[in-house]
Amino acid sequence: MTVPALQLEGLRKSFGKTEIIRGVDLSIGRSERHAIIGPNGAGKSTLFNLITGRFPQTSGKVRLHGHDLAGMAPFEINRRGLSRSFQITNIFSNMTVFENVRCSLLWSQGYKYSFWNMVSRSRELTEGAMEILEQINLTSRAQLPAGVLSYAEQRALEIGITIAGGADVIMLDEPTAGMSHSETDYIVELIRKVTENKTLIMVEHDMGVVFGLADYISVLVYGEIIATGRPEEVRANPKVQEAYLGAALEAEH
């Protein structure tokens, strides 16, 4: 039996008295594309924050490739091969777009805290960054401060920073939010391409994207997973229909 890429066991999180994540058990296999859907405020982003070490959990366990992540800081979790994007764009706005991407390559290319290498002398860094920029269609913006990009461009950069390091578990929190149809189609193809043979965990409200990309879907409602399975199973599940999907699918049309 192979170890799942990510495994959650009885995960709980309370903010003060309110329990936001109320016992989540989930196992996500290697090279699986897994979407987490659910109504606003269900706790999807909170779940991401628990997994990536942004918040400590109240109880329960998170395992990445079988390793317990308890007490690890985000940078330690990232070094174990997990990378995430944010629902609210979280970039280095005073640095150029190019710098943003190059910085996200540094650790994965093994530079660590080096103060004896010149970043501009490394061909791998420069070309790696240019390649990512090409993929996210920001080559022409390379030398602009990231803060002056349009909203959609910043979202693309957010994804670029997340995928640049080549992590094998990639978590995207609403990657297509605020994008136009054509931008969404493009980003979905990009996500499909860069997560080839990788594990993808994605929160997404756009059902077209979810059913187009995901191998598995989990539905989170009020901090609990009410269903998990293949897209067609989830779609047919009456509980899901009632709690979320019916309304969400209707909104699509």
Partner: peptide
């Protein structure tokens, strides 16, 4: 370079391994 990144957004820098 990462000093600049941490100056701008220490949280995101942590999610890049630093």
């Amino acid at each position: 370079r990462m000093a600049n990144a941490v100056r701008d957004n220490p949280e995101r820098a942590e999610f890049l391994g630093y």
